[in-house]
Design a protein around this nucleic acid. Structure first.
Lengths: 265, 265
DNA sequence: TATTATTGTGTACATCATACACAATGAGGC
DNA sequence: GCCTCATTGTGTATGATGTACACAATAATA
C-alpha cells in the first residue's frame, strides 16, 4: 500500500500506513469510542468537532479501542491523540450498536488516501461505539487537529454542522445525559475561574439546560446547596452595579459530587 | 477438535463444537452482552442467574454479539437462547471494559470440555461487555437453562451467590440504575397481575428501593401520578380487612413512561 | 364473640418551587 | 455634576410537596 498524498512527513505517512494495514493487531476491530466534549464560553454551550481532511465533513473525536487498554483509558488516549486535550474527566453515557452505523464515509476517505478496501477492511464494517462526554473549561484547553483532520474547533451546540455517522444522535444523547445529571450533581468547578459571579454561574446552568432561570430563585438554590462562599470582593469594570465574587467550597463541592444533591434543577 | 462429553445429542455437540471453532466468523470477538433480569416475587426482588456446568459457579446470562445483529437485538437473542425468556423489555445501562475482565474461568471450562485454548482463543481475551437490565413478571416466565448451564434460577438480589467475572458489579450497577429510574418512571405494568392491591404495589416499590415507605404517603403519591384507577371490588380471602383492587390506566401509564413523572420516590 | 393483624383515611408542619417588585450601583453620555 | 440605563442585590407571599403521625373499620381465626 502506498499513500498517494504529498506534503506530509515520511515518518507520519509510515505510521498511518501501518495503522491501516496492521491496526487490527493492536486494536479491537468493530469497537470504538467517541467523545462529546462540551465547553462553555460567553454564555453559550459549545461542542468540540473535528473536520476530516478530504471529506469536508465534521465528526466527533473518536477512535478504535486498543487491545491492551481499558475502554476508559482508550477514551482518554483517543481524546488526547485526536484533539490534544489532556487530563479531562470523561464520563461514559451510552454504547451505540445499531446495524446502520456502517461507516461508509470511511471508504470514501480510504479511496482518497489510496488505501484499498481490502487492506483496511478491519475498519470498514459495522462498529459498536461507546460514547463518553465531558464538560471542560473552554479557556484552559487548546484543541489541535490530528493527522486525519484539518480543523479541531468549537461549535455552538445549537448551531453546528450536520455530523458524520450517527454523531448527531450522540451529541443529543450526551446533552440529555448532562442535563439529567444536573439534577443531582453540582457543576462549575473546573469550568469557571477560581472567582466568579453569581450571574456567571447562572449563565452556565442556563446554557446547559437550554432555558432561562429566575435570578433570585437560582441564588437561593445555590446557597442552599452550600457549595459556594461569597467573598468581600466585587467584580469591577462592568458597566453596571458590581456583582459579588464567589468561590467554590471545594470540600463541600466534592462531597455533593459524591453523595448527590437532594434536589436540583 | 472433539468434545469429550457424553450424554448430549450429537447434533447439539456439533453445534457447540462449531461455536468454539468458527464462532469468530459469526460473532464479533471481544464484545458481548450480559443481562441482569430482575423479578418480583412475594415481596422480594430476585435476579435470574445461570449455573455453569462443570464449574459449579453462577453468572448472568450473556453471550457474544453477532456480526449481523444490532447490540439491542443481540441482547434479546442472547437472553432467549440462554434462559428461554422471550419478548422482554431490555434497557442498556453500562458498557464494562476494564482490563481485568479477562474471563479466565472460561479457560477452565474449555479445559473440561477438551477445547484447546488455541481453537477457542477468540473467546479467551479481554471482553468488553454491554450490560442490559429488565424487570419481568416472575410468574409469567419460565426460565430454561441452555447447553452450557445446569440451572437457570431466581436468587434473592440481597442473598445471591458470588458471581463469575465482574457480574457482581454489574448487578449492583443495574440495581442502582433501576432505582434512579424509579424517580421519573412508573413501574408495575407487566409486573403485577391485571388487578392488584395498593399494598402489593407498595411492596414492589419497597423491594426495588430496598427501604420501607409510609403507607399513606405512598398511596397519595401514586394517586397523584394518575396512573391507576380503583375498582369497586376488593380482594377477599385474606385474614384481615379486604383491600381494594386497582388497575393501571394504560394510556396514562404509557404517557407517564414517555414523558416522565414530575417527581418520584 | 373476642382477638389480631391489616387496611383505609385525614391533618398538621416543615420544606420547597415559583412568581414577583423595588432599591442600589456604576459606567457612559450629556 | 447629573441623568440614563442596564444590571445586580434582596424578601415575601402563595401554592405544592414531603413527611410524620393516630384511629376506626374489617375479615378471618380461635
Amino acid at each position: 500500500m502506498i499513500l498517494m498524498l504529498t506534503g506530509y512527513p515520511m515518518d507520519k505517512m509510515q505510521e498511518v500506513e501501518a495503522f491501516f494495514r496492521t491496526g487490527h493487531l493492536q486494536y479491537i476491530p468493530h469497537l470504538s469510542v467517541d467523545c462529546v466534549i462540551f465547553g462553555f464560553h460567553e454564555g453559550e454551550l459549545k461542542v468540540l468537532l473535528l473536520k476530516w481532511k478530504h471529506l469536508e465533513r465534521w465528526s466527533l473525536p473518536g477512535g478504535p479501542i486498543r487491545r491492551d487498554q481499558s475502554v476508559d483509558e482508550t477514551a482518554h488516549v483517543v481524546l488526547k491523540d485526536r484533539t490534544g486535550l489532556d487530563d479531562i474527566f470523561l464520563q461514559q453515557f451510552y454504547a451505540f450498536g445499531s446495524m446502520d452505523r456502517k461507516e461508509s464515509v470511511l471508504l470514501e476517505l480510504f479511496d482518497r488516501l489510496n488505501v484499498s478496501n481490502h487492506e483496511a477492511n478491519w475498519l470498514s464494517e459495522r462498529t459498536v461505539s461507546i460514547g463518553y462526554y465531558a464538560l471542560v473549561d473552554f479557556s484552559k484547553v487548546n484543541p489541535v487537529p490530528d493527522f486525519f483532520s484539518e480543523a479541531c474547533s468549537w461549535w455552538d451546540v445549537c448551531d453546528r454542522p450536520s455530523l458524520l455517522f450517527d454523531h448527531d444522535a450522540m451529541v443529543e444523547r450526551a446533552l440529555q445525559t448532562l442535563q439529567q445529571q444536573l439534577y443531582y450533581q453540582p457543576i462549575g468547578l473546573n469550568l469557571l475561574p477560581d472567582k466568579f459571579t453569581m450571574p456567571e454561574l447562572q449563565q452556565l446552568y442556563e446554557a446547559v439546560l437550554g432555558r432561562k432561570l429566575d435570578r433570585r430563585n437560582f441564588q437561593k438554590k445555590i446557597q442552599k446547596m452550600g457549595i459556594v462562599e461569597r467573598l468581600k470582593e466585587r467584580r469591577t469594570g462592568g458597566a453596571h452595579r458590581s456583582p459579588y465574587l464567589y468561590r467554590f467550597d471545594v470540600p463541600r463541592y466534592e462531597q455533593a459530587l459524591a453523595e448527590g444533591l437532594a434536589y436540583g434543577f
